[in-house]
Design a protein around this nucleic acid. Structure first.
Lengths: 225, 225
DNA sequence: GATAGCTCTCAACTTTTTCTCAGGTTTGTG
DNA sequence: CACAAACCTGAGAAAAAGTTGAGAGCTATC
């Protein structure tokens, strides 16, 4: 499996390259849009990891150009934090998935693998568990039609839980998927954020079924009916 | 499969060696970094278990040196509990995984197996004996479709039994696989936990065949049909 | 440069599990 | 059948895991 990383930040590009190589991928790097576009058109990659912000030619532009030239290599777009439009714009330009910086490496790996596994299928963008709805494009979360305001970390945590419903996720799982790969996060921090989420998505909705459940000694799980 | 343990604590090294040999691995031990590094460069091991803190040459240094010399043997680093940075440092030095001391032997075994199988990733995740099913990924246990709630220790014990069906396991076997290596566990504690398991997986299901059987004077075994 | 909001840690507190003990029961052996 | 060794189990203290309020440190915004 051959992958192209188009990313001007050498540190990130290097880290991702090393990680992916350890996972037995062949990895090339381009440090700007011009060069990256050329690479992508020359070599038939299995997937492209593309930074949104790039010198020379912008990531969006690279993506659009590739699609115009009938190149359908799966593209994972890396976007800056809380720039809502970036993602919409990226997906509109033909990207297959997006990932918010800073990201956890396992998360990137999982996304890339997902892209490779189902090249044609479009990514699930609206997640639904019971009457809880999370829209990964607009970042809106509602329960029973009522809007819920979440912080970035809370959103990321809930998204991870909703992508793995009915499955117990350990704190280690959660830490490595929700937090940046070089962050040293205590298990207690996960507990605290679970508490925040509960206050927002369970407590105000007096139902017999609490969506977020504790599995003492194992982790947490989101219950689907 | 040949494994090298580089660990200055003779007690730990010995326990791991015995356990791994029971699992049909060939095991060598080095008691310091200098010697370990030489061993690792001389013999082509399938995996290396490397203590972070070592006399002569530090574990990090051993790891870095091996990688510099283009040796890519999978390395599992053992780190002390309270050293948060050890983990990052170890992975940066080229280790493939880490494990925090004190650990249970089964945990170590699982990690080593994961490293050996890294390219394929076909870990056995669902164990099945009769109508008893244990999912190591989601931590779910069911019998005859009915969900069973277990504590962490009970789960760990049942997993060990299910990975060795129809085989008599002594209390010593069980203690060294299920508990941390430095825990002083009485044989009676195993008896107690076997009792807990029986209450949950055998008693409520009135079948003629009790899955957990006592082999008086030897140990216990899990009966498969 | 004050304010507001978010992230993350800490510490006190609650809940549950872990593990041991002690006394009871079963099993094998002479 | 008597006896000891092995095993089982109810009770409960100690330890661990999880919850939560408070707040320090950052960052963005006006």
């Amino acid at each position: 499996m051959r992958i192209l990383i188009i990313e001007d930040d050498h540190k990130i590009a290097g880290a991702v390259k090393r990680g992916m190589e350890q996972e037995k991928f062949a990895v090339d790097i381009s440090y700007d849009g011009q060069d990256g576009l050329g690479q992508a058109l020359t070599i038939d990659y299995d997937a492209i990891i593309l930074d949104r912000m790039l010198p020379e030619i912008d990531g969006i532009e690279v993506c659009r150009t590739l699609r115009e030239k009938e190149n359908h290599t799966p593209i994972l777009m890396l976007t800056a934090k809380d720039k809502l439009n970036d993602r919409v714009e990226g997906l509109n330009a033909g990207a297959d998935d997006y990932l918010v910086k800073p990201f956890a490496f396992v998360e990137l790996l999982a996304r890339v693998r997902a892209l490779l596994r189902r090249p044609v299928e479009t990514k699930e963008m609206v997640l639904k568990i019971d009457d809880l709805i999370l829209n990964t494009m607009t970042f809106e979360v509602t329960r029973g039609g009522k809007k819920i305001e979440l912080s970035a970390t809370e959103f990321s945590l809930l998204e991870y839980l909703m992508r793995n419903p009915n499955r117990i996720l350990t704190k280690d799982n959660i830490i490595s998927h929700v937090w940046d790969y070089d962050a040293d996060i205590l298990p207690n921090t996960v507990e605290v954020y679970i508490g925040y989420l509960r206050n927002k998505i369970d407590k105000p909705f007096a139902k017999k079924l609490q969506l977020i459940q504790t599995a003492r000694g194992f982790g947490y799980k989101l219950a689907a009916s």
